[in-house]
């Protein structure tokens, strides 16, 4: 597994520095410094966080599952590295990288909290777990497709699923937003202990990841090069 990690890290080090800086730091920090000027609410910060973490997850997906062109994976399979190890390490790295992006993406929310009501760990955990939930859902859906059909197909599916979710949310809020019953149910959900909601979301994330990992392993075991 170490060789797979090393390859990814060494390849990442060759990426244009501005791109990594932009993705990791410039966007979130820029928003942090403009929280007052933008007069945003926590919900707006959450939307920005969602966009940032999505970009991060997409970047991470392309980085770890986009190596078919050079035949590196084919070659790696002739070394003592096993198919299982390749998939495990790619999942691990994608997860670690995505979580780092998500943590950075919560920064604007933290800054806004500090400047307004004060830092609330429970609120932050809720935002973090919600962003993680969205990203893990996207990735666990997309990675097995990338493994089976290649990174281009995976990326297209990623974008399609994201657009579908986004459209679904917009349409649902337009249609159901004025429905009193739904609004009161949503209100009730918001007032549920955020620790419980966060724990539930993170548990679902773990289950989704494990299922996705098992599917990808099964696909990769039969993959021909």
């Amino acid at each position: 597994m170490k060789s797979v990690f090393l390859k990814t890290l060494l390849s990442a080090a060759k990426f244009p520095a501005f791109l990594i800086l932009a993705l990791f730091f410039i966007f979130p920090i820029y928003i942090c410094f403009n929280v007052d000027a933008l007069q945003n609410t926590l919900a707006d910060m959450f939307s920005i966080g969602t966009m940032l973490s999505m970009i991060g997850s997409f970047f991470s997906l392309s980085m770890h599952f986009g190596e078919e062109t050079t035949g590196w994976n084919k070659f790696l399979l002739t070394t003592p590295v096993t198919r299982k190890q390749i998939i495990n390490s790619k999942y691990l790295m994608t997860a670690v990288m995505s979580v780092l992006y998500i943590l950075m993406s919560t920064l604007p929310s933290v800054v806004l909290m500090i400047k307004t009501t004060g830092f609330d760990f429970r609120e932050w955990l809720f935002i973090f777990s919600a962003l993680t939930g969205i990203c893990i859902f996207m990735l666990s859906f997309t990675i097995p497709i990338s493994v089976k059909f290649g990174n281009i197909a995976g990326s297209v599916i990623f974008v399609i699923v994201f657009m579908a979710i986004l459209s679904g949310v917009v349409i649902a809020s337009a249609l159901l937003g004025k429905n009193e019953e739904i609004l009161s149910a949503a209100n009730g959900l918001i007032h549920t202990d955020k620790y419980i909601i966060s724990a539930a979301i993170l548990s679902v994330c773990v289950v989704l990841t494990v299922i996705s990992l098992l599917i990808s392993r099964a696909v990769y075991k039969k993959k021909e090069f």
Binding site: K7, L10, T70, G71, W72, T79, P80, V81
Partner: peptide
Amino acid sequence: CCFPLELNPKNLCSIFRAAY
């Protein structure tokens, strides 16, 4: 050649040291 084109032979050495 199946090696990552962005790397150099020295990088490859580190990777293969970990593999073999």
